[in-house]
Design a protein around this nucleic acid. Structure first.
Lengths: 219, 219
DNA sequence: GAAGTGAATTATGAATTCAATATTATGTCA
DNA sequence: TGACATAATATTGAATTCATAATTCACTTC
């Protein structure tokens, strides 16, 4: 749905490429919050002119990753703890909706895959393989979103999730929290498979809010 | 909150100005969905060069109002009924959260104002003054969002609400639906004032979903 | 020596120019 | 006449250039 392929073979617009790379750099923390962006420096680094770079900055500003101050340039948005909490509240609502919808409309294949991934999650936890755990965790959340069948929901979620990914990366995963998270995921998978919309929705919301608490504790 | 004033005296960037005007034009239906945008034509109409115009297009595309197809230009996003439904589902979730939060944290002054506006809504309904009704209706929704104290929620909602504003304008308001809507608003105001988070949340969600149905019927 | 003013430098905002791709028009051949 | 190939045109993508505002730094003055 709404999946028209506008760009058949590797001819992505330069501005798009720059947007993605810059976003990645910000999310990975290569560029720190509060840091001012020097257009000239970036153009030489990327080997492009200022025109597509500035277009990329406009997009990232629209996404909330940058603040564009007239005649002063772009600054990486600084995230207060309060703002992260705000975003998580919204994300929780969105994932709650995703849980509800997924329990309603997901295909059996979707549910099977989510269950399968949840088992992988359990294994990566048992092996204390954090990188794998994070990867699978993300994949599960994404899968549930997609299984909701609501593309707008997926995109809205993506936009916001980007903004707290930094905080998420740094979240400290205490042993207790980690164990709880795995169990929550298993409960979610179960509720989805049982087509229990109310429970799936509630569990998804709670799961997100718990995640927020674990981030908060750290700082 | 997050209300830093970046632009003291009237020196808005040209690109921002264009972005706003173009957005307005799209939302008001001056430019129809599916319509292809000719950059040259717009530059002459606005009296600017292509550079800031293209930056504006990038922003609007990020907002989901345009599709940017490589080497083919921008096209106003065409909204299928299914997409509108998707957006409304997400909006319902967001307004549900707003209801929950507002019932929890809104100031007494906020609640008094919402109640007051709800009474105005009733009056405008009694006088069958549709323009006023629409205006107050929007104001109430906005007020509840703001009263939630979650700025991220307000902005996310705004972004999505923009996208269905077109459909909303055209929604047919049958007498029954109109009456029901007013009653729903009164129930919401009551739940908020009673600090009944669960009810406020549920009513807000239902209200939005009902709105969707009334749009659907028409087409 | 510190504060303030003004020139020089640097960075951003916007227009213009150049290049590459897509669209349209024309003509040829079956 | 219709389909295809090719040329002409128009449009988009990106680099360069020009203009304007902000920052920096030196100098004057108290």
């Amino acid at each position: 749905m709404s999946q028209l392929k506008p760009d058949p073979i590797g001819r992505t617009a330069l501005a798009v490429e720059i947007t993605n790379r810059l976003r990645q750099m910000i999310l990975e923390g290569v560029m720190q919050p509060g840091e001012k962006i020097n257009e000239k420096a970036l153009t030489t680094q990327f080997g492009v002119s200022r025109t597509p770079l500035r277009e990329a900055l406009k997009v990232l500003a629209a996404e909330g990753l940058l603040d564009l101050i007239p005649h002063r340039g772009a600054v990486i948005t600084r995230q207060s703890e309060a703002e992260v909490a705000e975003v998580f509240q919204v994300l929780a609502a969105l994932e709650g909706l995703a849980g509800d919808l997924a329990a309603k409309v997901a295909s059996e294949a979707d549910l099977a895959q989510i269950t399968e991934m949840t088992e992988q999650l359990r294994r990566s936890y048992a092996e204390t393989d954090r990188p794998t755990y994070f990867r699978i965790n993300q994949a599960i959340h994404k899968a549930i979103l997609v299984a909701s069948g609501n593309d707008t929901l997926v995109k809205s979620h993506e936009l916001l999730a980007h903004r707290v990914q930094r905080a998420r990366y740094q979240a400290n995963l205490t042993p207790e929290r980690w164990r709880a998270a795995v169990e929550e995921h298993e409960a979610i998978a179960k509720a989805l498979s049982a087509r229990d919309t109310a429970t799936a929705s509630r569990l998804m919301q709670d799961h997100l809010l718990h995640k927020l608490t674990s981030i908060r504790v750290k700082s």
